[in-house]
């Protein structure tokens, strides 16, 4: 199988490391060669962060480059727009519609661009735009945004529900498992 590429983007501290951990675990168990590349340190302090997940028969580079991502999974809509150039022609975006103002917007040095989902869609790009924060709260915790996103991503994979559930169980603390399972379902069943 040709290598598939996923990038997970967001704002430092939003929980992308757990999402990539669950994905990596899942894909390895499915028999793929997997590489996951993360960013630690400075940019975790509220900066723009990107995590790369690659899987296939044999994966070499640990990173994904522009024009290569089959999927963009995004925690924040400005970040979706920032990393848009990484999407492959025909790729799919799964994004949270939450807006987190970056410091230049807060200080008034820049403006947060409006109607980003519509503008991306106007480029003919497939995008699932979800209010993940509301869905996560509905599931029981606003911290479950990452699992809502994964639930939606699972919709595009030919991987069994059981395998996803096993990976959730293996990577999420027992006491939060039910919340996360609900979050996963809400994401999975989302319809635009």
């Amino acid at each position: 199988m040709e290598t598939k590429n996923i990038i997970i983007v967001g704002v430092g501290g939003q929980g992308s490391l757990l999402a990539s951990k669950i994905l990596g675990h899942l894909l390895l168990n499915e028999g793929f060669d997997v590489k996951v590349s993360e960013v630690h340190g400075m940019s975790q302090r509220g900066g723009s962060v990107i995590t790369y997940v690659r899987f296939g028969d044999k994966v070499y580079s640990p990173v994904v480059d522009k024009g290569q991502a089959d999927f963009i999974v995004s925690f924040e809509i400005l970040e979706t727009a920032r990393w848009l150039s990484y999407l492959k022609d025909g790729g799919q975006i799964v994004t949270n519609t939450q807006q987190i103002d970056p410091m230049p917007v807060i200080t008034g040095a820049a403006e947060y661009p409006a109607n980003l989902v519509e503008k991306i869609r106007a480029k003919g790009i497939k995008i699932d735009a979800m209010d993940c924060l509301t869905l996560a709260r509905q599931a029981g915790s606003q911290k479950a945004v990452n699992i809502v996103l994964l639930g939606r991503l699972s919709h595009y994979f030919k991987i069994s529900e059981t395998a996803w559930q096993n990976s959730l169980k293996a990577n999420v603390p027992q006491k939060f498992l039910e919340i996360n399972q609900r979050a996963f379902e809400l994401g999975k069943n989302f319809s635009a």
Partner: peptide
């Protein structure tokens, strides 16, 4: 890759 026409503010 594809980009939008909008300027995307930096997120330091």
């Amino acid at each position: 890759g594809v980009t939008l026409e909008d300027a995307i503010p930096a997120r330091p």
